[in-house]
């Protein structure tokens, strides 16, 4: 189904995003040149000018934030045997979705000023809200090793493994002093691992860029944030940094 099994054709696409995840891909290719032997890249605006339309695997970065995005994404879905959401914007809606909680006209005026009417926009959504997604590489930006791991799994014809346990597991394996014990705040107990707990390892709390674990105990997590000194308003703001779309869906 994915064409030449030994060397599948892959393409990269972007929607509303900062292109940071694609940059991480470019970076990974430099440290893993063996990847270029394993796949053939036919489209990658960030890194090359040639353009092929016969791809089997599509990596899609960015959230869907206007009506015209949808047709383009659907065309990608029709062509590709496998669609992979690349990074938090495509996976969760991400940072772009923060504005969903505000009146859209205000947001548009704030961003585009008197040219607001020139630009179409609507509430930002993850790509899974529009098309079926086969695999996800979470993170803002994505983790290099995980990107390589997902490609390897796809080449083996396996569903890419995504950790279903929280960041605390990786954090504890690294023997970090817990951010809460240093007076900080962290969403690690309910956020999906896979980043190697990079933020707590550097002394910052996890902000949730990889999305929630399955069955998170969010109520208890909220209580912890307040118990350790956050105001209720700040606690709620923590959940919306990367999770606005999910919070609003859960609430609606």
């Amino acid at each position: 189904m994915i064409g030449d099994l030994m060397k599948p054709k892959v393409a990269f696409f972007d929607f509303t995003s900062c292109e940071g995840c694609q940059l991480t891909v470019v970076d990974s290719l430099q440290t893993h040149v063996d990847l270029l032997d394993a796949v053939e890249i036919v489209q990658f605006r960030e890194a090359m000018t040639e353009k092929g339309e016969d791809y089997a695997i599509a990596f899609v970065e960015g959230s869907i934030s206007r009506a015209s995005d949808e047709a383009r994404l659907r065309r990608i879905r029709e062509q590709a045997a496998i669609v992979v959401a690349l990074g938090a914007c495509a996976h969760l809606g991400g940072i772009n979705a923060i504005r969903n909680a505000q009146p859209l006209d205000d947001v548009r005026k704030y961003v585009y000023g008197d040219k607001a009417d020139w630009y179409e926009t609507y509430p930002a959504r993850p790509i899974s809200a529009v098309v079926k997604v086969d695999a996800v590489i979470p993170g803002c930006p994505i983790d290099r090793d995980e990107f390589i791991g997902v490609v390897k799994a796809l080449l083996l014809g396996k569903k890419p493994p995504l950790p279903d346990y929280p960041v605390c597991v990786e954090c504890k394996r690294k023997e970090n002093v817990c951010v809460f014990h240093k007076g900080g705040f962290c969403l690690g107990p309910v956020i999906r691992a896979g980043c190697g707990a990079i933020c707590p390892t550097c002394g910052d709390g996890c902000e949730g860029c990889r999305g929630l674990i399955p069955n998170p105990n969010q109520d208890s997590m909220s209580d912890v944030l307040v118990k350790y000194g956050l105001t209720v308003a700040d606690m709620l703001a923590r959940w919306t940094m990367f999770g606005t779309y999910q919070q609003m869906e859960a609430g609606s």
């Binding site: 929280p166 605390c168 597991v169 504890k172 394996r173 817990c178 107990p189 105990n217 109520d219 208890s220």
Partner: peptide
């Protein structure tokens, strides 16, 4: 059930 975050820290340490 209501309190535990299922974070695994208790086991890991």
């Amino acid at each position: 059930e209501g309190r535990c975050l299922a974070c695994g820290s208790c086991n890991l340490v």
